[in-house]
């Protein structure tokens, strides 16, 4: 198992703490079957241009960090550009730290937070005294072509240029709620230190509500993201992973996407191993698979 990126520096008072939904996303994209699919889709033989990977609503940034630190294992190549968005400025700060730490951990050969085994255990004959340097050499390529571009305070994909995103991750606020919290106005993105305890509590509660409250069927925010997908994804090789819970009616969401036409399809992944608890979590993979999809991108050299 690829280690979970560290989020020990993140304050979870007002940022969503990585939980089973986040981990399902990590396990899904790094599963043998899925990464084989991704490696085929993003083969350098088809298109050499580096992957542009975006996570909308990063929270702690654990999913984006996982992809940024392990692109070779997941996508079969190490040349990736990553960018995160969140409506919460604190989450933006947390994300860049989580991503940079994860990439650095990988490069330094840290075993990560499993603590269960280090890669060293799998390399018999290596003197533990020298092991650090061996791992550094092994992972020397990590981080050289992995560039974190920015964290931006924004609603979903609002400022993204059309047809550029190769991989989009979204772990939405998916819990059905009677109403939706409004998006924060631009000014709230700036820190205010003069808050009373009660104001701070109110503000933290509000920011946390943005991480889970999904409105009708838990789908109000997710629907807005789905609407943006045909516009922001690279039409040739782009793929989006969106987490859903049972109450979001994943089968219906899937059908709706297939009705978009233009070769858009959706697959439900990770359904068979998530049956515990009262809610079923799945990952929806959305991409264009019609004629011409996953062939050389529209951009050409020169």
């Amino acid at each position: 198992m690829i280690p979970t990126p560290s989020t020990s520096h993140v304050s979870f008072d007002r940022i969503y703490e990585p939980a089973e939904d986040s981990f399902l996303l990590l396990d899904t994209i790094s599963s043998e079957e899925e990464s084989a699919w991704l490696c085929r889709r993003f083969s350098k033989e088809i298109d050499q241009s580096p992957l542009f990977i975006v996570e909308a609503g990063t929270g702690s940034g654990v999913v984006l960090a996982f992809a940024a630190a392990n692109p070779k294992e997941i996508f079969g190549r190490s040349d990736v550009l990553t960018l995160g968005t969140d409506v919460n400025r604190d989450a933006c700060k947390a994300t860049r730290q989580t991503v940079l730490r994860a990439v650095d951990d990988k490069r330094m050969g840290y075993p990560g937070e499993d603590g269960l085994f280090s890669r060293l255990d799998l390399m018999p004959g290596v003197d533990p005294g020298e092991s650090g340097s061996v791992l550094e050499v092994e992972n020397a390529e990590t981080g050289k072509e992995t560039h974190f571009l920015a964290s931006m305070t924004t609603d979903l994909c609002a400022p993204l240029r059309a047809r550029n995103v190769d991989v989009l991750f979204f772990n939405p606020p998916y819990v059905p709620t009677p109403d939706m919290p409004p998006l924060p106005p631009p000014s709230t993105a700036d820190e205010s230190s003069s808050m009373s305890k009660w104001e701070k509590f109110e503000r933290d509660s509000y920011l946390l509500s943005l991480t889970y409250a999904g409105g009708l069927d838990g789908m109000e925010t997710t629907n807005r993201l789905l609407d943006a997908i045909p516009e922001v994804l690279n039409p040739w090789r782009g793929v989006a992973y969106v987490l859903l819970c049972g109450q979001n009616k994943p089968e219906m969401v899937k059908e709706r996407i297939c009705d978009w036409g233009g070769g858009w399809t959706a697959e439900i992944l990770g359904a068979d191993n998530m049956q515990a608890g009262w809610e079923r979590l799945v990952v929806l993979r959305i991409c264009r698979d019609g004629p011409g999809a996953a062939s050389p991108s529209t951009v050409t050299k020169g």
């Binding site: 400025r89 860049r96 920015a150 964290s151 931006m152 924004t154 609002a158 998006l183 631009p186």
Partner: peptide
């Protein structure tokens, strides 16, 4: 600010 662009809209 501090390298984080703010694209929230009024």
């Amino acid at each position: 600010k501090d390298g984080i662009a703010n694209f929230l809209l009024p």
